[in-house]
């Protein structure tokens, strides 16, 4: 019986020596194709506990992430914002490729938790409440930025970050940049390009560039000539002092005769 055992050991070791470089190469290919990107470190072990970490290691990290998502939903119903933030950290570490997790987590932090913080009288003075509100904005931005780093091949989180920068930070220049990045993806919706131009038109010092983009969109035809585009274009034409003859949007009588 010794000979077959030796034969099996030799077979397994030889097969191991043959497959290790292949497996290493296939693993690299998996990572390049955005598979197996979750970083299951010791920090996660502390957050998940023994059983959850074991389950995540054994190929059930998506199920563990879903269970935590349901927990986060319950925390939301109870308005436990701090607990939600901690759960979102774990969930997005487990499933960094699920756009919905980054998107919803950022939305909860920047829109829901921030409003709750501003209205939370237990925080005391208004200055403190505004500070807490801004901290939740920052949390939302951080989630979206990390989401983008984990999903560089997708446009959705650029759009969400642009929305956050526009509506919460009122940073129209940065929002225009994010919308433009989203628009650069082949599968991005057509409105991303429009939104990028709208935000650029609100960015001080970028009037000329915004005018050119808006005019280019206008020239694409009726489909692009939407009310917001017309009003932004008219505004840029006015700001830049475009001669009446060259204007795409005719000036209203009230504007020409102040």
């Amino acid at each position: 019986m010794i000979r077959p055992i030796i034969a099996v050991l030799v077979l397994l070791l030889a097969f191991g020596a043959l497959r290790v470089p292949i497996e290493h190469a296939v693993s690299r290919e998996h990572r390049e194709a955005y598979f197996r990107g979750a970083q299951l470190g010791l920090g996660l072990r502390e957050q998940l506990g023994q059983v959850g970490f074991l389950a995540a290691l054994s190929g059930f990290r998506s199920v563990v992430a879903d269970m935590l998502w349901i927990k986060a939903h319950t925390a939301w119903e109870r308005t436990e914002w701090g607990r939600m933030a901690a759960l979102f950290e774990t969930i997005t570490s487990l499933q960094p490729r699920v756009i919905m997790f980054w998107d919803m987590a950022a939305w909860h932090m920047a829109w829901n938790a921030s409003v709750a913080a501003l209205n939370d009288q237990r925080l005391g003075r208004e200055a403190l409440r505004v500070r807490a509100q801004r901290q939740y904005f920052e949390l939302g931005r951080d989630l979206l930025e990390r989401g983008i780093r984990n999903n560089p091949d997708r446009w959705t989180l650029h759009d969400r970050l642009a929305m956050l920068l526009r509506d919460k930070f009122e940073d129209h220049c940065a929002a225009a940049g994010q919308y433009a990045r989203a628009a650069a993806f082949a599968d991005a919706p057509a409105y991303e390009k429009r939104f990028a131009a709208y935000e650029l038109s609100r960015c001080p010092g970028q009037e000329r560039a915004a005018y050119e983009k808006l005019a280019a969109l206008f020239d694409l035809g009726k489909k692009e000539q939407l009310p917001t585009l017309l009003s932004r274009l008219a505004e840029m034409e006015k700001v830049l002092g475009i001669p009446e003859a060259d204007r795409r949007v005719p000036q209203r009588p009230s504007e020409s005769n102040p």
Binding site: E23, V26, S27, H30, A33, Y34, F35, R36, G37, A38, G59, R61, S62, Q95, R97, V98, I99, R154
Partner: peptide
């Protein structure tokens, strides 16, 4: 064996 090699479905569900 490398069994993680066969855990691609998590990321496939995520849209990969």
């Amino acid at each position: 064996p490398d069994l993680q090699m066969f855990n691609l479905v998590d990321d496939i569900v995520a849209g990969n």
